[in-house]
Design a protein around this nucleic acid. Structure first.
Lengths: 114, 114
DNA sequence: AAGCGACGTCTACAATGGAGACCTCGTGAC
DNA sequence: GTCACGAGGTCTCCATTGTAGACGTCGCTT
């Protein structure tokens, strides 16, 4: 009966995944430029800063990512403190759900998709 | 160097996948209402007929699905013959590529995503 | 002959994807 | 000191994708 099921756009999913990967492997929240580099590298998706912030804001509204102010070493530039993002538990949840759906759909098609 | 990698929207991907699954398992092209039922069932995504046709049209423009006229048993209703859809080889290709990307992104996160 | 219902079409709108201009203010060069 | 530069983030604008629902047509029933 899925009450208003929530769906992730494809780019949102990529951002969430890349962000989770960074925070997991570095054990720290990630500043935007690092995330951007990761997207370009791992997912082959070059995206402008504006586009990324926009997406991050939307993900935040949905409660799937959150951020904290970066207090360390880096001086506050341009009147804006640097933000460090991370995926929330809810974010991990949608990622998990989306993965389960896809895995289910793929399962009977392995011979076609390799 | 991935020259302009192609990205599928999330719903497009679901449609392609569900369609491929049906045609594979039934060995026949699929009429829209069957696809619609499958989407509701396997992917938990209830969608209106209009929305589905719209998406199918867009997928057709990109060359990822194609259709043929249903000549069998079913009488032509409403001046419109029934169409039966199927995924094209290109469509299978993007599905494969998208799957590879996701699998790659997930690979280092199995402990988090299960 | 009347209307139901199966099909596909069309229009309108919301959400998401994406680029780029822009503003602010530490910092380093001079 | 002061000026340009660059690292942050913000804002606005446009394209694409996701979605619903009203509509038109015409075989099939009754």
């Amino acid at each position: 009966m899925t009450p208003t099921p929530v769906f992730l756009g494809d780019f949102e999913q990529l951002v969430l995944l890349a962000l989770l990967q960074i925070t997991e492997s570095s054990n720290d929240h990630a500043p935007v430029h690092v995330l951007r580099d990761a997207l370009r590298g791992h997912a082959g998706r070059a995206v402008s800063r504006g586009a990324l912030y926009r997406t991050l804001d939307r993900l935040e509204e949905k409660g799937w990512v959150a951020w904290t102010i970066d207090t360390e070493d880096v001086p506050e530039r341009g009147g804006h403190p640097r933000r460090r993002f991370h995926v929330t538990p809810d974010g991990v949840g949608v990622l998990r759900a989306s993965r389960a759906t896809l895995l289910g759909l793929w399962s009977t098609l392995e011979h076609v998709l390799d």
